[in-house]
C-alpha cells in the first residue's frame, strides 16, 4: 500500500505547485482583472488536486473529499465573477495594455436610462 500513498502525495505536491503559481500571478499581474484570472483559476485546480491526493491516501473519507471538490468547483467561479463585476462597476483602474472595452458603453447606456427615469 506504500506505492498508493506515494502516488497520492505526488498529486498533492503538484496541486501545491499550482497554488504557488496562482499567488506568483497575483503579485506579477498589472491590474485587478488579470489578477482575478490567474489567482482563481490556478487556485481552483491546485486545491482540487491536493484534496484528490489526500482522498487517495485516506480512502474512507473519500465522500467528504468529493463533496468538498464539487463545492469548490461550483463556488470559485461565482465569487470571481462577482468580484470582477464589482471591480468594473466601481471603476477600478484598468491596465495600460487593455486593448478594447465593450462593457463600458453598455454600462454608460444603463446609467443614462436610469437618470432619464428619475428625471
Amino acid at each position: 500500500m506504500e506505492i498508493i500513498k506515494i502516488i497520492g502525495a505526488l498529486i498533492t505536491l503538484l496541486g501545491s505547485v499550482f497554488l504557488l503559481l496562482g499567488s506568483i500571478g497575483l503579485i506579477r499581474m498589472p491590474d485587478v482583472f488579470t489578477r482575478i484570472q490567474t489567482g482563481t483559476k490556478a487556485s481552483t485546480l491546485g486545491t482540487l488536486l491536493s484534496l484528490l491526493g489526500i482522498g487517495i491516501i485516506y480512502f474512507d473519507i473519500a465522500g467528504k473529499i468529493f463533496l468538498l471538490i464539487v463545492f469548490i468547483l461550483i463556488t470559485n467561479p461565482v465569487s470571481s465573477h462577482m468580484l470582477a463585476r464589482a471591480a468594473h462597476y466601481i471603476g477600478v483602474k484598468k491596465a495600460d495594455v487593455t486593448v478594447v472595452d465593450e462593457l463600458e458603453d453598455f454600462e454608460n447606456e444603463k446609467l443614462n436610462n436610469k437618470t432619464k427615469i428619475s428625471e
Binding site: 498533492t12 496541486g15 501545491s16 497554488l19 496562482g22 499567488s23 497575483l26 485587478v32 489578477r35 482575478i36 489567482g39 482563481t40 487556485s43 481552483t44 491546485g46 486545491t47 491536493s50 484534496l51 468538498l68 469548490i72 470559485n76 465569487s79 470571481s80 468580484l83 464589482a86 471591480a87 466601481i90 477600478v92 483602474k93
Partner: peptide, 18 residues
C-alpha cells in the same frame, strides 16, 4: 485597490483549505 485585497483574501482562504 480594495478589490485587490478581497482577491488576495480569496486566494489565501482557498490555499488554507488544502
Amino acid at each position: 485597490s480594495l478589490v485587490d485585497r478581497v482577491v488576495a483574501f480569496d486566494v489565501m482562504t482557498v490555499a488554507s483549505i488544502s
